[in-house]
C-alpha cells in the first residue's frame, strides 16, 4: 500500500496521464482481494467494507481514454487497466498488456518524482468479462447448455428454465503448490446498449506472484491469461466455438 499517496497528489499523476486519458472520474475504492490457500472452503462470508471505518474514505480514480475503451484505475493499493467494448473489436491481450505497461511506467515515474514509495506487487489479477449472445434462442437466460459444455438441459414438460446463475472456484497450482485461484461465474444479463438478453460469463484469475518485482508480476499476468484461455475453451461448447469462429485456443 502506498500510504503516502494522498488525493492531493492525483492531479500531478493526471498531468502525466492526460494525453492518453483526457477524462477523470472519482469512484469508491475497491476492497482488498487476497488469495490464500490451505484452509477448507467455507460458505462465503459477507465481505466487509474496511474503508468506511477508517476516517477519510479512500478514493479510486478512473482515467479514461477519449473513446472510452481504455480505463486506468488507481487507488493507493491497486492499479488496474481495463479495455471496455464500445464500437470496435477486442484489440487482443498483447495490446491491453502493452497499455498496462505504459500505465505502470507513468505511475512509477510519478512515484519517484513525488517521493511516494515504489511499486511492490503482492497480488495479480486478470479478468475477462464475456457477454455471450445466443441468437435464435427464445430465452438465452435459460439456454446455458448451449454455452457451457458440461451442462445438460434442466427444463422439462411444463417446466421451462427461466434463468440460472452459478459460480465456481478452481485452485491453480504450480509445481504441485496452489499459487492462484480461478473464479468463474455465469449469470443472466442485459447487453447495455441493445438491452438484448445475454449470458455473462466472468473469469478472474488471481494470485500472489513469486516475488514482488514487476517482471514476476507480468509473468503471472501472462500465466493468468493463458489459464483463462484454456478454461474458457474447456468450459464452453464446440457449437459456440464454431459460432465465434474460434481458432486461437492454445494449450
Amino acid at each position: 500500500m502506498l500510504s503516502e499517496l494522498k488525493n492531493a497528489h492525483i492531479g500531478y499523476l493526471w498531468s502525466r496521464f492526460r494525453d492518453r486519458y483526457p477524462k477523470v472520474q472519482e469512484q469508491p475504492s475497491l476492497e482488498p482481494s487476497f488469495e490464500t490457500f490451505g484452509t477448507p472452503p467455507m460458505a462465503q462470508q459477507p465481505s466487509f467494507r474496511f474503508e468506511q471505518f477508517i476516517g477519510v474514505p479512500a478514493t479510486r480514480y478512473w482515467f479514461e481514454t477519449a473513446d472510452d475503451t481504455g480505463l486506468c484505475q488507481v487507488q493507493n493499493d491497486r492499479i488496474i487497466h481495463n479495455w471496455r467494448k464500445r464500437e470496435g473489436d477486442y484489440p487482443r491481450y498483447e495490446y491491453v498488456r502493452a497499455e498496462l505497461e505504459k500505465d505502470l511506467n507513468t505511475f512509477e515515474e510519478f512515484l519517484v518524482a513525488e517521493d511516494l514509495g515504489s511499486l511492490r506487487f503482492n497480488q495479480i489479477e486478470v479478468s475477462y468479462i464475456n457477454t455471450i449472445d445466443l441468437p435464435g434462442t427464445d430465452n438465452p437466460h435459460g439456454a446455458v447448455e448451449q454455452v457451457i459444455s458440461t451442462w445438460t438441459r434442466l427444463d422439462g414438460v411444463g417446466r421451462d428454465l427461466e434463468d440460472i446463475a452459478f459460480r465456481a472456484r478452481f485452485l491453480m497450482s504450480k509445481d504441485g503448490v496452489p499459487n492462484a485461484r480461478l473464479h468463474v461465474s455465469l449469470a443472466p444479463a442485459l447487453e447495455t446498449t441493445t438491452l438484448n438478453r445475454v449470458v455473462r460469463l466472468d473469469m478472474t484469475y488471481r494470485g500472489k506472484p513469486e516475488s514482488n518485482d514487476r517482471s514476476s508480476a507480468m509473468k503471472m499476468l501472462d500465466e493468468g491469461r493463458a489459464a483463462i484461455v484454456v478454461a474458457f475453451a474447456d468450459m464452453t461448447t464446440p457449437e459456440m466455438h464454431n459460432h465465434w469462429g474460434r481458432t486461437d485456443v492454445q494449450r
Binding site: M1, S3, P32, T36, T39, M42, S47, F48, F50, I54
Partner: peptide
Amino acid sequence: KHDAAMFAMVILQNVM
C-alpha cells in the same frame, strides 16, 4: 499499517 490490518481481516475471513 492499513494493509497489515486488512490482511489480518482477510486471514480471519478464511479461517473463522
